[in-house]
Amino acid sequence: MAVFDMDSTLIDMECIDAIAAAAGCGEKVAAITERAMRGEIDFVASLTERVAALKGVHLEVLDSIRDELPVMPGVAELLNTLRERRWRTVLVSGGFTWFADELARRFNFDVVVSNYLEIDDNDCLTGTLGGRIVDAEVKADTLVQLTNQYGLPRSQVLAVGDGANDLPMLQAAGFGIAFMAKPILRDIADYCLDEKDLSRILTLLR
């Protein structure tokens, strides 16, 4: 089983920053995102603050971002090859369903877990999240739960991420890869991939 983060891992962007830029608060939100990714501030608190800044953004903005998602180089080759080899693929993201579900559709992920942006009757963001927030704990718990559900030994579970929010998930996996990652994640990863080509992971699985 291979478990992936989404923003700055499967796609070459932070979706919340792109939405914020369209809403006119891009610099403020991007600065909070960067601090959260480095592990300097609490993820849930920072996400709640950033989402609140998006209140009033129309869904057309999300649609335009979703239609132009910059998929990371090597994603298609990696995921298609994993599926050919009968790996289960999982997307667990602190990002949003609007984009995670699109990636799941394109690349046939077996499981996708992400945050839900609440929407009002005018098809605008309310500035709040629905349901349990997908944070570092939820990411790790999802990996462990699926490992047990599928009856896999820990040694057959791979996790890939880039920021502090992925740290427990990588530690719970049998093999954790830090992809173009922040120092806090590089320090605990089994392998650091510093080239923007996710297909390079395949060389580690042979």
Rank of each mutant, 00 (worst) to 15 (best):
D110G: 06
G161F: 01
N165E: 01
L146R: 08
I19Y: 11
L204H: 02
Y191Q: 13
D141G: 14
D121C: 12
A36P: 07
G95H: 01
F96Q: 06
C25G: 11
T126K: 02
A20P: 08
S199L: 04
L69W: 02
W98H: 15
D67P: 11
E60W: 01
R66D: 09
L59T: 05
L47R: 02
V44Q: 12
A100K: 05
L205Q: 04
L158A: 05
A22G: 14
A22H: 15
D12L: 10
A36W: 06
I188D: 01
E60L: 10
E27Y: 00
K182Y: 08
S114M: 09
G131H: 11
V144K: 12
E118L: 06
E27G: 13
K55S: 13
A22T: 13
R154L: 10
Q149Y: 01
L158T: 06
R85F: 02
D135H: 06
Q145H: 12
G56A: 05
L152T: 09
T142R: 05
R85C: 01
A100E: 03
D7P: 08
E68A: 14
L198P: 11
L204K: 04
V144W: 02
G39W: 00
A178C: 07
L117F: 03
G26N: 05
A100G: 02
N108G: 14
R83N: 11
L129Y: 12
N80G: 15
M13R: 11
E40W: 00
R200V: 02
D120H: 00
A45E: 15
A140E: 02
P73W: 01
E14C: 09
V144T: 14
G95K: 11
P168G: 02
L78I: 02
I11E: 05
A2Q: 03
A53G: 13
R83K: 14
M6Q: 05
V134I: 13
I11W: 01
L10F: 00
P70Y: 03
G39I: 06
D120R: 04
L91G: 00
E102C: 03
K55R: 12
V138P: 03
T9D: 03
I184Y: 00
I16C: 06
T126E: 00
G130C: 13
W98S: 08
F175L: 08
D162Y: 07
L117C: 04
A164T: 03
D190I: 07
I41V: 15
S199V: 14
L143F: 11
V134C: 13
D194K: 11
L54G: 04
S64W: 08
V113K: 15
G39Y: 03
A178K: 14
M169P: 06
L69S: 08
C25D: 00
I19Q: 10
P183R: 13
R186Q: 15
N108M: 15
N115Q: 07
C124I: 08
E137A: 13
I177Q: 07
D110H: 07
S46Y: 09
L167T: 05
A100T: 09
